[in-house]
C-alpha cells in the first residue's frame, strides 16, 4: 500500500549546489502523527518546506498517496491535499480572522466556504469570538489556532506544521498539541517539525531524527526519548522549546 506522504532521497536548497536537505527519505502512513526532530540547522524546516513546494528541489521525489507531487507549484499543493503551516508570519495580519479563512478556502463554492468557516469556528471556539478582528491583533496562541484552521479549511489529507509551539506559553503549547491529536482523530495525517521534542513525542506515533539534511534515525515516538543514539545525536540539546 502506498504511504500517505513519502519522500525518496529528497535533495533541496535555496542556492544551487548548496543543498540543505541532502537525500532525506521519510514515509508517513495514513493518519499517523510523525515528528521530525534534529539539532539546529539539520534541515528539518527545509524538508517540509521543500515538500510544500517552497524550497527548490534538485533531486529525489515526493509522493502524496502514491501520486508524484515533486516540484508541483506551492499554490497547487492545497488542491493536491497537502496543507502547510509555516512557523512565523502564518496569518495575514491585515485581514480579519474570517477573511483569513475565506481567502484560504480558495475555490470552494460560497455556501460551502461559509459552512467550512463555521466548522472551523466550532473546532476553535476562541477564534469564533474574534472573527471580525484583524488577525494581526491576535495573541501568539490564537494566531497558531488561526493558522491551523486556515490550513484545515480545505480538508487536507496531510497537515504539515513547522514548530507550532515556538514562542507559545506552556498552557498554549499543551492546547495546540491536544488539538493536533484531535485533528488526527478526524482523519488527517500530521507531520510535525518541533524543537519542543517532549511535547511533540507525547502525541506522535513515530519520529525521524534529521542530521545534516539526512535521516539519521527513525523510531516509535514512545521509545525515542530514551534512545541513547538520539541522546548522542542531539548532543545534549534536549531542552524543551528554545531557539531554532
Amino acid at each position: 500500500m502506498a504511504a500517505m506522504l513519502e519522500t525518496d532521497g529528497l535533495v533541496a536548497g535555496y542556492e544551487p549546489g548548496l543543498p540543505i536537505v541532502r537525500g532525506a527519505s521519510i514515509r508517513v502512513e495514513p493518519q499517523e502523527i510523525v515528528v521530525i526532530l534534529g539539532p539546529n540547522w539539520a534541515g528539518k524546516s527545509s524538508l517540509i518546506k521543500a515538500i510544500a513546494g517552497l524550497v527548490p528541489i534538485s533531486g529525489g521525489a515526493v509522493r502524496l498517496a502514491g501520486a508524484e507531487i515533486t516540484r508541483v507549484p506551492a499554490h497547487r499543493m492545497v488542491q493536491a491535499g497537502l496543507a502547510f503551516v509555516p512557523q512565523t508570519e502564518n496569518v495575514f495580519p491585515l485581514l480579519s480572522v474570517q477573511d483569513n479563512l475565506r481567502v484560504s478556502a480558495g475555490g470552494l463554492p460560497r455556501a460551502e466556504t461559509a459552512a467550512r468557516i463555521e466548522e472551523m469556528f466550532a473546532l476553535f471556539p476562541d477564534l469564533a469570538r474574534q472573527r471580525r478582528l484583524m488577525a494581526g491583533s491576535l495573541s501568539g496562541g490564537q494566531r497558531q489556532m488561526l493558522a491551523a484552521a486556515r490550513a484545515l479549511i480545505v480538508r487536507p489529507r496531510v497537515l504539515m506544521l513547522d514548530e507550532p509551539s515556538a514562542g507559545l506559553s506552556p498552557k498554549f503549547v499543551e492546547m495546540v498539541f491536544a488539538r493536533l491529536a484531535e485533528i488526527r482523530r478526524g482523519g488527517v495525517t500530521v507531520v510535525l517539525v518541533e524543537q519542543n521534542a517532549r511535547a511533540a513525542l507525547a502525541i506522535g506515533d513515530r519520529a525521524y531524527v534529521l542530521v545534516e539534511g539526512r535521516v539519521a534515525h527513525e523510531a516509535p515516538a514512545a521509545t525515542l526519548w530514551d534512545d541513547p543514539v538520539v541522546a548522542e545525536l542531539y548532543l545534549g540539546q534536549r531542552s524543551d522549546g528554545g531557539g531554532r
Binding site: V78, F84, E89, L95, V103, G106
Partner: peptide, 15 residues
Amino acid sequence: KAVSQNPALARVVGI
C-alpha cells in the same frame, strides 16, 4: 490583499 501582505503565505494557501 493577501498577496500584498505576505506573498509566500499567499502561495501556501493556494493563491
